[in-house]
Write a protein that binds this DNA or RNA. Sequence first.
DNA 1: AGCATTGTCTGACTTTAGTCAGAGATCGTT
DNA 2: AACGATCTCTGACTAAAGTCAGACAATGCT
Lengths: 290, 290
Amino acid sequence: MLDPVSRVRRFNRAVTSAVGALDTSFLGRGRPLGAARVLNAIGHGRSDIGDVRDYLGLDSGLMSRLLRSLEDEGLIETHAHEDDARRRVASLTRAGKREFAAYEALSNTQAEGFLARNSQREALLAAMDLIASALTRDRIALTEMDPRSDGARYCLGEYYAELGRRFKQGFDVSLSRDPDAKEMRRPRGSFIVAMSDMLPIGCVGLKGTDHGYAEIKRLWVAPSARGLGLGKRLMDTAEDAARSLDIALLRLDTNSALPEAGQLYRTTGWREIPRFNDDPYPDLFFEKRL
Amino acid sequence: MLDPVSRVRRFNRAVTSAVGALDTSFLGRGRPLGAARVLNAIGHGRSDIGDVRDYLGLDSGLMSRLLRSLEDEGLIETHAHEDDARRRVASLTRAGKREFAAYEALSNTQAEGFLARNSQREALLAAMDLIASALTRDRIALTEMDPRSDGARYCLGEYYAELGRRFKQGFDVSLSRDPDAKEMRRPRGSFIVAMSDMLPIGCVGLKGTDHGYAEIKRLWVAPSARGLGLGKRLMDTAEDAARSLDIALLRLDTNSALPEAGQLYRTTGWREIPRFNDDPYPDLFFEKRL
DNA sequence: AGCATTGTCTGACTTTAGTCAGAGATCGTT
DNA sequence: AACGATCTCTGACTAAAGTCAGACAATGCT
């Protein structure tokens, strides 16, 4: 009754019925679930229908019929893909957008209701993030992004907030040499964000310099995503980016107040070197030749 | 992207696909999902078929056919209910038990796999308990039970263990005047257990005395179920039980090391009174007239 | 004893979901 | 230009799920 497996299974039962309830509320809009799912996938930006098919795991015949039924309802339109006329892309009509918004409202209301019914809001959200990250760990996508994009800015904000908590003396971004976003964009450098189902959960920056090396900066993994090996994946991806930019030498600085980071560097081919900058926060310096 | 509602929805998406994966693995046993669900419900002890029907939300016609198909497979047998021959009860045959065990093994393997894949085992389990309790909060059933039943004994065990942790000097049941189970059974008193999907998550005892009042004892709520107002529901139910037993005056003792409890009593019509027993543990005493 | 109610079952459907083969158009490659 | 590969679509299915009316037996209540 109390062993770990039973607890996981109790959780499964609880969420199964919650998920079922949302499906039922979707059914309330008078359309079979299959068609509703396709409409929502398109609404969420999956316009390429092959993409939708893969995402929902549908047979091509079934998919085609669902598209037809949505078209007959006047909710979507399909066009040939501009680069490849075999492929089709779908888009919502005005009525389709209204209908999609109605589904969104249902989902939002359900989520808000859940939050409103429960008092331990923050604890619940943290628990949900943790579980969602664990469940989607093998679907985490690392993508290069502009450091000024929403996803990147969110990660950086969380990163700075965490530094502030971890360092005894606090952390003030302006004191640190905040690398210009330009230096973390191709062709100078790169910025990589880990997205778990549209939520950014980690990042790393590769910052170009004029000193014959590039720097790894801003490695961060969301608390809810730790223990999944994401730090290593981010670093590997950053190194790949460096290689693709013909960068042969990497350096980074870190602080001994972040022991997990130091541990990661030491076990992945970095070697400690003497201080190479005068930034006040770091007290550990590493280098790696690619 | 980061607002609470989006986080809840991300969680929903993550668990939806996980739940779908379990369904698919169930399908692997060559039986439609509907029939598999009925078999599992019976295996889990829902023998009364009306009960199964309500639990799974099935139409009675559909239910009947699913039972027939399981009977044809030789997995279940049905009999008339012994008190009411209109109702039917189902039980697993030997082959049915084997098949049920196979489904159990699938579920267990899936749960174990999830735990094994992730390092933050305890954090995940705590998160799952929290979410499961929050999701099932309006399906928490408060039922009167014998204080010697499994569910009641489990709650009492957890209750004593928690007292031991909370009290500086520890807690030894034998030192406390442990009320005889008889005094917490009708017609003397009552014992109420809160069950969330077969897991006992709270209890309260109403103990009859010969002094013109009854006592509230052993109020306990599982850590994962706190913040749901369950303490109040348990107390309300105990008061209802008292009224149904024509008890007009209630007393209880508690300890100031349990501030949530004192807070609950004060805000629900209880008033503090002088010590009325010589039990060594309590240092706060309350009374309520019904 | 009579009558409404309850619980289950059967028959006769409809709707959804999913499968499979093949047609027709388009694309990339040679 | 020819060929095989790719993508979507249609037709022709099957299987699963769900709905509804009514039959039938047992029960509770007057």
